[in-house]
Write a protein that binds this DNA or RNA. Structure first.
Length: 601
RNA sequence: CGGGCUGUAGCGCAGCUUGGUUAGCGCGUUUGACUGGGGGUCAAAAGGUCGGCGGUUCGAAUCCGCCCAGCCCGACCA
């Protein structure tokens, strides 16, 4: 198709609004793709909407190819829908709520597990109707505590969400089969979008195993850390990433043992401050974080009430790993409750294993080396030096009911790979654009969605769910691909493939040529924008770079006199290359086709 | 939700400390002329509830109070 600059709306800005900071936010605003209406709420102007539509179209094609059926669910959801799964409480303030004239409360859908389960519950009752995979591309709402970075974290955003339904996990028609197919479809989607990305293992769903993957666009500005092992291809996010075999310490008495000494460290709960004050390094310190064991209604009271996890000062405790090693559902302890129980929050030491009843201490392998260590002193504003595991804790170390050693910290760059001996983990930053996981029966059980199996037994349906942030993908692409002058779109997502720039818009020869070229390209399936504004060349070139259309054809006097036009890719420097007019369309078509991955446009 | 900060023309900002003509500047916009290969020059013009409400005062963009909106850091993030 062909558009004219003067007949569409592309309000480019020389200066970015002060509130925008991240590259995608600044550039999408400056290049006239989006406008802000409120915090985390944006207009998609014509360029932005074209990109958004292209992402959505690629997603749609791949979902259809993967055997999913498109539908559309309401955004306005009666709050009662959430009562069964308790997600109104889980979501808390994240859920947007509206009240109607009768006082009834509805939520604006943040995701659609409940409504889809409700919908299918009404029309699927036999195993013969399964498996089923349905999806929608729908606006979602989340009342984010802090919307930020433009489209990357909005309060209103476009998302593709798919849900699959099965009677088994394994075998033909099972959840795993669809999960694998969706994984492959996601790889296709992001490849076709022209993105550099990594699929990483994420926190497991209720079924266990590698039941969840996140798709992360590689971008320096990403909020998430991705760990990768080059040798094995293993990749995971920080929450999930395992660490390969490490040297386990002996928890012994240090050879050069020092006496335990208490030092005054006023108002210094932080590792860094204490290390500086005591002229030691965080690697020589122990950090102990207290978690509360969550009792489950209807189950016997757990043997422990608290879990204290000790890691080296330069490491971070990983809550999921604390959960696995302890075997308990835990949450970071409420500060007041923990203080009341006897924990000097901010100054806790592993000695709490004896001092506070019902405490299980988890020691990370790196923290299990011989002392002496610097640790909290279990009283406010004090630390101890010369801490020695064997001497301070003694017998508890040998009682697995009181102390366990294992992996309880976040992986870091340089840690041993869990999949390839001798290989080390590397880190990168990413932006999460897709997430797939095996849900299991959480929603179907909570909402009573059962089908009759071949043995005439009622069985809760097994579910999977699969999300892609469509608007976020658009922004992530800009984060991944831009330069000082503006956006650099990959061909598949570009709002237009080609920008034709007649230097003098009112020159009849140039106008006619622009017309002819664009018609020829359009007939080949190319999207063309003609900059027909009566602007100075500098303005047109600056805007061309800013909006980031991949191919630029410049129509100027000198080149035309020589029977040529200038052909330039956005990624090329300079004015571009002279191409005879007769070959211009063909050359452009080839570039567009190549940029689309060889697929017909 | 904690910490820091900002609201003055479409965008970027000054003015506020020390209250006092008609609230300025740059960019953008409009009109005209000259120009025409990386945001050009000249001339003229349009455009403002100074975030809102209340207070102090003869007088408030400026001082005080409350509220609202927004940004950044952190917490949080299916």
């Amino acid at each position: 198709m062909v558009s004219r600059w003067t007949r569409t709306l592309i309000p480019t800005l020389r200066e970015a609004p002060a509130e925008a900071e991240s590259p995608s936010h600044v550039l999408l605003l400056r290049a006239g793709y989006i406008r802000k209406l409120g915090a985390g709420i944006y207009d998609y102007l014509p360029l932005g909407y074209r990109v958004l539509s292209k992402v959505a179209q690629i997603v749609r094609q791949e979902m259809n190819a993967a055997g999913a059926a498109e539908l559309s669910l309401p955004v306005l959801l009666p709050i009662e829908l959430y009562s069964g799964t308790r997600r109104d409480a889980d979501y808390g303030d994240l859920l947007f709520k509206v009240t109607d004239r009768k006082g009834a409360v509805a939520a604006l859908g943040p995701t659609h597990e409940e409504p889809i389960t409700e919908a299918l519950k009404g029309c699927v009752s036999s195993y013969k109707q399964l498996p089923l995979n349905v999806y929608q591309i729908q606006t979602k709402f989340r009342d984010e505590a802090r919307p930020r970075s433009g489209l990357l974290r909005g309060r209103e955003f476009l998302m593709k969400d798919a849900y699959s339904f099965h009677t088994s996990v394994d075998g033909p028609g099972g959840l795993s089969e669809t999960y694998d197919r969706m994984y492959a479809a996601y790889v296709s989607v992001f490849r076709r979008c022209g993105l550099r990305f990594t699929a990483v293992e994420a926190e497991s769903g209720p079924i266990g195993g590698s039941a969840s993957h996140e798709f992360m666009v590689d971008a320096e500005s990403g909020e998430d850390t991705v760990l990768k092992c080059a040798a094995s291809g293993y990749a995971a996010n920080v929450e999930k990433c395992e660490i390969g075999a490490r040297q386990r310490g002996s928890l012994g008495l240090a050879a050069g043992a020092q006496p335990l000494a208490e030092v005054h460290t006023p108002a210094m709960p932080g590792i860094e401050a204490v290390a500086a004050h005591l002229k030691t390094a965080p690697q020589r310190m122990l950090k102990t974080i207290v978690f509360a064991v969550l009792g489950r209604a209807g189950e016997p009271a757990p043997a422990h009430r608290w879990v204290a996890a000790t890691v080296r000062g330069d490491h971070e405790v990983n809550e999921g790993k604390v959960r696995s090693l302890s075997g308990y559902a835990v949450a970071l302890a409420d500060e007041r409750a923990a203080r009341a129980a006897g924990f000097a929050i901010g100054y806790v030491s592993p000695r709490v294993v004896g001092a506070v009843p019902g405490t299980l201490v988890l020691i990370d392998e790196d923290a299990s080396a011989d002392g002496p260590w610097v640790s909290g002193a279990d009283k406010a504003d004090h630390h101890v030096t010369g801490f020695d595991w064997r001497r301070e804790i003694g017998g508890a170390l040998d009682d697995p009911g009181r102390v366990r050693v294992g992996d309880v910290r976040n992986a870091m760059a340089g840690d041993p790979s869990p999949r390839a001996a001798g290989s080390r983990l590397e880190t990168g930053r990413g932006i999460e654009v897709g997430h797939i996981f095996k849900l299991g029966t959480k929603y179907s059980e909570a909402m009573g969605f059962r089908v009759l199996d071949e043995k005439q037994q009622q069985r809760p349906v097994i579910m999977g769910c699969y999300g892609i942030g469509v608007s976020r993908t658009m922004a992530a692409c800009v984060e991944m691909s831009h330069d000082a002058a503006g956006i650099v779109w990959p061909m598949p997502l570009a709002p237009y493939h080609v920008l034709i720039v007649p230097m003098k818009a009112e020159d009849p020869q140039q106008a006619a040529l622009a017309q002819r070229l664009s018609a020829e390209l359009a007939s080949g399936g190319v999207d063309v924008l003609i900059d027909d504004r009566d602007e100075r060349p500098g303005v047109k070139f600056k805007d061309a770079d800013l909006i980031g259309v991949p191919v630029r054809l410049t129509l100027g006097d000198k080149a035309l006199a020589a029977g040529s036009v200038e052909f330039k890719l956005r990624t090329d420097a300079g004015k571009g290359e002279l191409v005879p007019i007769a070959q211009a369309a063909e050359r452009t078509l080839a570039a567009v086709t190549a940029g689309l991955g060889g697929a017909p446009a």
